[in-house]
């Protein structure tokens, strides 16, 4: 598939809206920035890789039309430690027994039997396997919302509470959501849930509150093996865009033609 097609041209909000959006961020996000930049001390700066150049993000200069996010998961590196799940839980205040990200463990025996588990979503890492079979290969598969381009969840939302943002993320407007859970039914990946307290749909936002300030998503930040990579298709010399453009990558459930923006390296036929 030609990559150019994926990178959509600047979508709806024109210059005026963009200015409005920036103003919104000035008003709403700067308060937070003051909170996290405690005193004179700067606690946050961008990702370690390009840390010198980037000033502490406050989100004030953020323009959603100039980004197009992608995500890449290298399954061959994952050790199933669960640091990402725990980081996500803390960062996004995820309720117990619900998951914005989780890790699955696949254990395949010589006879081709597949045992899959994900105790508490991999939150507390994994206990030793107990299948008793002769396991010939095993691997961990971290999952997040695939932020599909052709997403069934947004299509089915009756009130426009689930939407696809100009920067390519699937987000939920908590103030509009009526809690019908149609989107939960529609997601083929099980990425959505109804929040037990707000009674609205909830899901991975790729840590929108972080990435708009130049920070990495909490799960990417927490991963000790660089399994999870976060990229921006509209950024020049983007590492993830480069890997997707030059390597063999896979997506989940391609037969459903949801066009995920979360790519995988190294997943096999067993992966659900």
């Amino acid at each position: 598939m030609p990559r150019d097609e994926k990178v959509e041209p600047v979508t709806a909000p024109e210059a005026e809206d963009r200015r409005r959006f920036l103003k919104q961020f000035l008003m709403k996000a700067s308060g937070v920035a003051v909170l996290v930049v405690a005193g004179e001390k700067v606690f946050f700066s961008a990702h370690a890789a390009d840390s010198e150049a980037v000033p502490p993000g406050t989100g004030e200069d953020y323009d959603p039309t100039r980004h197009r996010y992608v995500y890449l998961i290298d399954v061959t590196k994952c050790i199933g430690c669960g640091a990402c799940v725990r980081a996500c839980e803390r960062e996004n205040n995820v309720p117990k027994h619900h998951f914005r990200t989780w890790i699955e463990r696949y254990m395949v025996s010589r006879t081709g039997d597949v045992a899959i588990d994900s105790p508490n979503g991999g939150h507390d890492s994994f206990p030793p396997e107990v299948t008793g079979d002769d396991i010939t290969k095993a691997f961990f598969v971290p999952k997040i919302c695939n932020h599909c381009t052709n997403t069934p969840c947004v299509q089915l939302c009756p009130v426009g509470a689930s939407f696809r943002s100009p920067d390519g993320l699937i987000l939920v407007d908590e103030k509009r959501c009526i809690g019908c859970s149609y989107c939960v039914q529609a997601c083929p990946y099980g990425s959505r849930f109804i929040h037990p307290e707000t009674h609205t749909a909830s899901k991975c936002t790729l840590c929108y509150h972080r990435i708009t300030k130049g920070l990495l998503p909490a799960c990417v930040e927490a991963c000790p093996r660089a399994v999870r990579k976060f990229g921006d298709m509209k950024r020049l010399k983007d590492e993830v865009s480069e890997i997707i453009a030059t390597h063999q990558v896979q997506i989940l459930k391609p037969e459903l033609y949801t066009e995920p923006n979360c790519y995988y390296i190294g997943i096999g036929k067993e992966v659900r």
Binding site: P158, V159, G160, C177, I178, T198
Partner: peptide, 16 residues
């Protein structure tokens, strides 16, 4: 059934 029955009319105000 709705998580937010008070918002039910959103379905006619901003139908998607």
């Amino acid at each position: 059934h709705l998580g937010h029955p008070e918002r039910a009319l959103n379905i006619v105000v901003t139908p998607h």
